[in-house]
Design a binder for these strands. Structure first.
Lengths: 121, 121
DNA sequence: GTACTCAGTATCTAAAGGATACTATCAAAG
DNA sequence: CTTTGATAGTATCCTTTAGATACTGAGTAC
């Protein structure tokens, strides 16, 4: 008697597929990995990440907040202060995300070499 | 004396960042996980994945091939047969990708609940 | 009132993704 | 022979997402 619904990304209409596809959007992993070392303000996040525009960063953060992965704390001081922090759910995603990061860094040279070879032909 | 170049996705211009962002494009994880159980033809991939259009599947596969993650085998029979298969490099990415898949399936319900809560307010 | 900081919006353009229809190849059926 | 059918894609058009850049609102300091 297992009442837990099962999710399977390989089934087209399974909600887990859409969630996995969201996790891999362009800035989500970078935002999460940047928040891994602790809460940051909006402007700090921008500076750390570097090439993201405010519009896109805002929408990425809103989606993360909506999905329960990031918590947004507004402090009414002057100027206003907004801190972003990983939730427990967000923290639980950090390890898988970091595995992707480590793979990317470890195999970047191989991927670049493969690209050169491919583009030659 | 370490001559290995170091990559860091948190550095804006590091190639590993672009590679990580590519890995998380919309269909890449799904294609790789679908190929995890063995080689598949183009049409079989389409059927397994379900909702992907041929144009997008083709471009996803070309990118994967270019990055050295997938191998494309053409067999000149009639009708023509094209098989796609993970390379060793692609296989090495499977474990991190699968960790993301497992997380998505395990926490899908929590994410959906967070969304409902967020949308109420 | 002017200036400054912070956290965003607004507007416009460019790139990526999606729906749908079409093509090339060749073999077997009629 | 002409038609049908399978496979692996392209081509075309349209919508959605991302990027560049400029601007806004709140509020204290000067």
């Amino acid at each position: 008697m297992d009442s837990t619904p099962t999710f399977n990304v390989l089934v087209p209409d399974c909600p887990s597929r859409e969630i996995m596809q969201r996790l891999g959007d362009k800035w989500t992993p970078l935002v999460m990995l940047t928040l891994a070392s602790g809460p940051l303000r909006f402007s700090e996040l921008r500076q750390h990440i570097g090439s993201v525009t405010p519009k896109v960063l805002t929408s990425t953060l809103r989606t993360l907040e909506r999905d329960g992965l990031v918590d947004r704390q507004v402090t009414a001081q002057v100027p206003i202060r907004v801190d972003y922090e990983l939730t427990n759910l967000g923290l639980s995603l950090l390890e898988p995300m970091d595995a992707i990061r480590i793979w990317s860094e470890k195999h970047a040279a191989k991927v670049m070499a493969a690209r050169e070879l491919f583009d030659e032909n």
